[in-house]
Nucleic acid binder design. Structure first.
Lengths: 187, 187
DNA sequence: TGTTATATGTACCGATCAGTAAATCTAGGC
DNA sequence: GCCTAGATTTACTGATCGGTACATATAACA
């Protein structure tokens, strides 16, 4: 079991794909930036698409772990966690090198709904929806499913608005909206 | 003044880019799908980037005209128009071949904020924000700028959620949220 | 009839694309 | 010391990329 090299490749590819895009990044660029030979890459992944799918799996794990932990650190109750999601997003948007959501970009570059990369991106969003719906249930909200979907629409909208860069602080705007929605869904 | 051929090219390129993506569409594919020779294309546009910028200008004009007219047709008062935006979005999402927002995709494929394609995409969003803010002012809303930004975050979120396809009817969810936000901003 | 602007087809450019072949190097297990 | 497995470099494939050269065709206008 030598997990090192393969994981190192996926980690480096994630950074390059995020910074440079999927289609715009050639395998030769990955060789140059990761220091791993092309032959080794194709030993681990049969195609570029397989590598991208592995990158998205890693990103899904990293992002959900980070978001859920940050929401818990910032708030005590489930209801407060729903609002704290937007404080966590603001931290993310302010990071240098922020370039939007990797899954939105993936499904934008591979836009056919039947494409494996598109489907796996949609899976990530489904898992987020499941978690937020659970939180809304724990918080005793009325219609937790609908509230979760509304909050996640705010989240996606804030992510793309922050990436477009035409607005000062979309996380703050989304948070203000979220507070009203949560209040209106409280019993 | 012969506007025909050039406009025909831009119109055809718009369809192909929207269906197939920007980077994934080569100039040879545009030749095949438009029936216009490559030499003529490069007479009208010096680079592929110039053609994309012209396509985005056309799309901006088409989309804003369509959205504003549809909002007016569906509602009488400015306040009702704000809500009707989400009914118009639902019509759009239900169209066959819906593939998300062209400007989100453009800024996702050309993600550097200093890139002309990214900047022009942000301009489109700025013009939408200006129009919605005006409507919110005409409707006598409190803090019309903040309400407009919130509604537009809902719009962008619904657009990407509809494209991901993991949710049934994001336009309906966004509309329900918008109704609450407008109500809370009413004097 | 001659001029000019715009269109065309075809063939090409160097660079890059994803992916492969083959020979060599390196390290750990026995 | 030897064997094996994984990693390496180098060179290569055919296809496609954005963009160009060049010679020709068409049609309006003078």
């Amino acid at each position: 079991m030598r997990p090192t090299k393969r994981d190192e490749l996926v980690q480096k590819a994630l950074q390059t794909f995020y910074r440079n895009g999927f289609q715009a990044t050639g395998m030769d660029m990955l060789v140059a930036e990761s220091g791993i030979s092309k032959t080794s890459m194709y030993k681990h992944f049969r195609t570029k698409e397989d590598l991208i799918l592995a990158v998205l799996r890693l990103r899904d794990e990293q992002f959900r772990n980070w978001l859920y932990r940050r929401m818990e650190e910032k708030a005590g109750t489930p209801q407060q966690q729903l609002i704290a999601m937007f404080d966590a997003l603001e931290e993310w948007f302010d990071e240098p090198g922020y370039k939007g959501c990797m899954f939105i970009k993936a499904s934008s570059e591979y836009q056919d709904a039947s494409h494996p990369i598109h489907k796996q991106s949609a899976d990530h969003k489904r898992m987020l929806e499941s978690h937020i719906t659970n939180l809304a249930e724990q918080a005793g909200m009325e219609n937790p499913g609908a509230l979760a979907r509304q909050l996640l629409i705010l989240k996606e909208g804030a992510i793309v608005t922050a990436h477009m860069g035409h607005t000062d602080n979309p996380a703050k705007d989304a948070k203000a909206a979220a507070i009203q929605l949560v209040k209106n869904h409280s019993p």
